[in-house]
Structures are given as structure tokens and as C-alpha cells.
């Protein structure tokens, strides 16, 4: 029993370690039916920060926030934490200038929006890119 407990503990720690190291990058993705192949970092900032939401193929970008990894994404994109991101949006929303990205509450909602809209831009853990999604830009964490 003691040996079993120790094995469980070692395995858990190993898995946690693997999980930590695997959490390396975040990928900005689009439905692979889109003609867009890649975007630059400044285009990604313009789209997700509400400055200029146009895709390289000239269509209107629809950015999607995904709650579980939102904080990691904005840290990687603009080096700001969620209080700073909310402060940024408070300025734009309450002056009626722009709206933040649409929020997907969970991964099912997220996949639903992404698969039904060729202009929807989302972000995922780079190690877990869903099928039928094309990576446009990878952000290092």
C-alpha cells in the first residue's frame, strides 16, 4: 500500500511537471476554411484590442475570448494582466468607442463559434490545437 501511494505521488508530480512544461505557447487560430494563412503580431494586437479589426483577406475579423486561458493570452499578447486589460476596455467601452471581443464561456461554445464562422479568430493552447483549425500566429509565454 505504501509503495502504491508513493507511486501515485511520483506519477502525479511527474504529470504536473509535464503539464507545466507543456504550457508553453498560445496559438491564434482560425477555421481552416478561411483563406487567411497568417497574421502579424501587430495585426493580432489591433484585432483583439479593438483598434482595427480587419483580416489580411480584407474581411472583418471577429475576435473571440476564451475564458479559461484569457489571462495567459493577454499576458503573452501585450504583457498585461486582467485588471489592466479590464481597465483598458473600461476606457473604450464606457466612452462608447469600441467593444471587447465576444466571450466564449467554455470550449464547446468556442468550437461552435469557430466552426461556424470563417472570420472568427480565437486562441488555444498551442499544444492542443483543435482539428480543422489553422494556426495564424504563435505567441510565446
Amino acid at each position: 500500500m505504501t509503495r502504491f501511494t508513493r507511486w501515485i505521488r511520483v506519477t502525479t508530480i511527474a504529470l504536473l511537471f509535464i503539464g507545466t512544461t507543456a504550457r508553453a505557447d498560445i496559438a491564434i487560430v482560425i477555421n481552416d476554411a478561411s483563406t487567411v494563412r497568417q497574421i502579424s503580431h501587430s495585426e493580432a494586437v489591433n484585432i483583439f484590442m479593438g483598434r482595427y479589426r480587419r483580416l489580411p483577406n480584407d474581411s472583418v475579423a471577429l475576435p473571440i475570448d476564451q475564458a479559461p486561458i484569457k489571462a495567459r493570452f493577454y499576458r503573452a499578447l501585450v504583457q498585461k494582466d486582467m485588471a489592466e486589460i479590464n481597465s483598458y476596455w473600461a476606457r473604450l467601452v464606457f466612452s462608447g468607442r469600441a467593444s471587447p471581443p465576444q466571450q466564449a464561456g467554455n470550449s464547446e461554445d468556442f468550437l461552435d463559434i469557430m466552426t461556424h464562422n470563417n472570420n472568427a479568430l480565437g486562441y488555444v493552447d498551442a499544444a492542443r490545437t483543435p482539428p480543422h483549425m489553422r494556426v495564424l500566429l504563435t505567441l510565446s509565454e
Binding site: 479590464n86 481597465s87 473600461a90 476606457r91 473604450l92 464606457f94 468607442r97
Partner: peptide, 10 residues
């Protein structure tokens, strides 16, 4: 000036 009333923004 547009957002001068929104304390959380600054």
C-alpha cells in the same frame, strides 16, 4: 476627456 468619469480606466 471622453472617459474622464470612469475611475477604473486610469
Amino acid at each position: 476627456s471622453e472617459s474622464r468619469y470612469v475611475g477604473f480606466a486610469y
